[in-house]
Design a protein around this nucleic acid. Sequence first.
DNA 1: AAGTCGATCAACCGCCAACCG
DNA 2: CCGGTTGGCGGTTGATCGACT
Length: 258
Amino acid sequence: MVRSASIDKNGLRKGSWSIEEDEKLRNYIQKYGHWNWRQLPKFAGLSRCGKSCRLRWMNYLRPDVKRGDFSEEENNLIIQMHEELGNKYALNRKATSLKFSLQHVTSSTWSIISGKLPGRTDNEIKNHWHTNLSKRVKPNQPVSSEVMNEDSVSVGAPSKSDHKEKNVENFPPSSQEISCSELSSVSNDSVLGMNTVAEDCVSSMEIFQDSGSDFWDLPFLPDNDYNQDGYESLFLTEDGYMSFYAYAYDADAIDWIQ
DNA sequence: AAGTCGATCAACCGCCAACCG
DNA sequence: CCGGTTGGCGGTTGATCGACT
């Protein structure tokens, strides 16, 4: 199910990733972070383009990526949010039209949805939508209560995963997996909820401020690339707050966070 | 057992917006 | 303001798997 590896005209590898490549990328990012995707492969010793590295990390190597079947709650949320957002919704455009300026609030449908589903990547959600969920929702058909009802979700041909989707043990996430986005209120008025996004931004910043260090003085700013909407990278522990990034940076970073 | 076909999903491509000098 | 760079997104591809005939 993976593309065979090959070398492009620039001498860069394409296609499936080897275990060695995965290890190189994972080790490098865990040690130094991803400060520049374009430059990263050179420093990590990889013959890959930066985009390929980014995609591999985001969709596969990230330690918080949750694999496995989607629960019915996750399916329903995806359907509901897709219904509201459509395929090409771009939050920054909406923000602009509302004269609403928020840096780092640049997202679109799949990433917004993935922000609400901790551990799920936008690519995974997109694939899941196209292979399973899109069959459930007929064109121009609003998401009815029937669709939202687990027992009555039977539109379209049943896929083999439909049987497994009844498994809901992974939802909701455990308390230790609660992300910042979930700590802030999720608007029921609209899944889109600009306020929700804004609150999430503030929440993240507040945590940085609470840490007692000057956010802007950090020598190596933790990258927010893969939590731009859900801020799921900021996980709580039993004793307060603790950045998920702690694992990914060196001891100094952990000390700073603590 | 062998062939066919649809489903799956990792990976790629092209485009666009933000950022920066 | 402009052009180059970078990151991120939606859409699509293609190899593989499993069900079916």
